[in-house]
Write a protein that binds this DNA or RNA. Sequence first.
DNA 1: GTTCTAGAAC
DNA 2: GTTCTAGAAC
Length: 330
Amino acid sequence: MFFPMSICQLVSQEETHKPILLPHLESVILGRGPQTTIKDKKCSREQVELKADCSKGFVKVKQLGANPTSVDSVVVGHGKEVKLMPGQLLHIVNDLYPYTVQFKEDPGSCKRPLDVSSKDEEGCPEAPSLKCPVPDVHSGKQSVAHWSQGLKASMQDPNMQVFKDDKVVVIKDKYPKARYHWLVLPWISIPSLKALRDEHCSLLKHMQKVADHMVQQCPHASALDFRSGYHAIPSMSHVHLHVISQDFDSPCLKNKKHWNSFTTDYFIESQDVIHMLETDGKVTVKEGTSELLKLPLCCHLCRKELPTIPALKQHLKSHFLAKNRTSNAS
DNA sequence: GTTCTAGAAC
DNA sequence: GTTCTAGAAC
């Protein structure tokens, strides 16, 4: 194909101006100026460099200015570059001037590309409402969210919800890594652990209470061990508390990354996150945490090292049998 | 996050 | 030859 399948736009969440077209693989430099309507002196005239990749569905964001540009509350850093996915929030500078990116099917029927400098208010007649960062399942192909934003849609789906109150919702993990595996998500959007502040403490404590409640209502709770905690570096956006039974008996547990993400310090206990927040006012992930995923497979119960995933699964069966013997004997 | 599959490991 | 892992995905 000669043309990318979709076009990419940068959308002001404050609707201070019309969306800015980000042509496929072309660098667009933005900052203080008429295009963004930003007049803030803290914002460089060349604050960010954006390069959309329409085939891969993300935008590379490079912070050119000295003051912080952030994606989902995480600072990019001067001269550094991060990926911006649909559904994530870009702040041009100092947590101000929020933007999202949108990939849409190339309208084709439009004779000319969307030209934001054009005075013609009619523009493309198809110009959709661009406020919602999560695509509406009913509107189909207007925009395509990146897979990492999938939890935002799942938590809103009544068919996925197994518990909800005014603060949180619980869904079953779509690919459970054990016999019981739930996710507790707050209704408010907290993109990642890095965005947590001490004001979130009570919410996290509530999430823990709901996690405990899920375990209590589980018919096999007394026969199983459970842990609740967060992945240090999750793949999916939107803070989520894993509540998972410690049998790890599931066909969806397939590789070393799966195993180590729940059985090494990559898995941070809910209490530890709350404690960190209370003492430091933020959550810090130790350097080298991502390397924990590459550690050899090691049984979480007896520390025996196993060479492969099938060998590990076979080994886990011996612990089930031992546990059944003790529970039958008592 | 998953799926797919080339090629490493056995 | 088969099993299994690990990296790309347009």
